[in-house]
């Protein structure tokens, strides 16, 4: 009697082992395609998160060659934007204008790319003509349009019209930039020259070049002291040499102070880096 049971157990045991072995073997035989669109998308997302935008674009484009994907197209546009390649970003976003669920966002990012490209008058013209205008984000674009007036030399609109686009948290800084833009805090080159004539280097400090001002003061002071000292010792040759050097640096300091203020004023005319953009 034991023998048939034993045989039964043996055969069951054998079947279990066989099943286990087959499952192990079949699990090993699953092929893993590293370059499948799915894997490339995952890799692209990883690169995007790590801000390796150029390689992320390559991966996304490889996926898009297999199947259209609006999200990936959008992320390609974002990648170009983050790299500062605004023209390429614009080109990518244009492909999504007819997208069923990303059209408005693509249009918004398109306008944002045009803004960051720096053609502010062109940007305002596009907004005025309502060309591919995202209605869902009209407030954001109105704010961007207001910002664009602060970024170039065009005539500023009335203050009330500017401020109406912004909420109370932003109004204070906008008023500040608006006043700064209307009446930039220019400095006077003549004043800087006179200050440097009285105290060498002071005009440079007035222009914001503190290091240069201290250096000019030290040079002029040192050679003046040496000249006076030599004259007191009746060493006229070296005294006149040091006098010439002192005059050289003194003249350069007065001239340079006026030039430094002119450079400062030019930076005010062109500086757009202080305009901070808050974007929702």
């Amino acid at each position: 009697m034991d023998k048939p049971i034993l045989q039964q157990w043996n055969s069951r045991y054998l079947i279990l082992i066989l099943l286990f072995a087959v499952s192990q073997i079949s699990a090993q035989r699953v092929s893993y395609d590293l370059f499948s669109p799915h894997n490339r998308k995952i890799f692209g997302d990883r690169l995007f998160c790590e801000k390796d935008y150029l390689r992320a674009i390559d991966e996304y484009n490889a996926v898009l060659n297999h199947m259209p994907n609006d999200i990936l197209q959008y992320k390609i546009g974002l990648s170009y934007f983050f790299m500062g390649r605004y023209f390429d970003a614009e080109r990518n976003y244009k492909k999504l204008f007819k997208s069923p669920f990303l059209s408005e966002e693509a249009k918004l990012e398109y306008y944002r790319s045009v803004f960051y490209f720096g053609d502010y008058s062109g940007f305002r013209e596009k907004i005025n003509t309502k060309e591919n205008f995202p209605l869902a984000y009209s407030n954001e674009l109105s704010r961007l349009k207001a910002y664009s007036y602060l970024m170039d030399d065009s005539t500023l609109p009335p203050e009330s019209e500017m401020l109406s686009k912004f909420d109370d948290t932003d109004k204070k800084s906008i008023i500040e930039f608006y006043s700064w833009k209307q009446d930039p805090p220019y400095k006077s080159p003549m004043k800087a020259a006179i200050m440097s004539a009285i105290i060498p280097g002071l005009g440079k400090v007035y222009a914001g070049e503190i290091g240069d001002g201290i250096t000019a003061f030290l040079f002029t002071g040192l050679f003046t002291y040496l000249a006076v000292d030599k004259f007191q010792r009746d060493q006229t040759t070296s005294a006149w040499l040091f006098t010439a050097l002192a005059a050289f640096f003194y003249g350069g300091n007065v001239y340079g102070s006026a030039a430094a203020v002119q450079n400062y004023n030019a930076s005010l005319l062109n500086s757009t880096s202080i305009v901070k953009l808050s974007y929702t």
């Binding site: 250096t215 000019a216 350069g252 300091n253 001239y255 340079g256």
Partner: peptide
């Protein structure tokens, strides 16, 4: 004359020991 003054100013700025890369 103006060139010499410009050079004097440039020499002073070149001799500046303080940080100036931002300028």
């Amino acid at each position: 004359f103006q060139g010499t003054l410009m050079f004097a100013d440039r020499f002073t700025r070149d001799s500046n020991l303080f940080k100036r890369r931002d300028h």
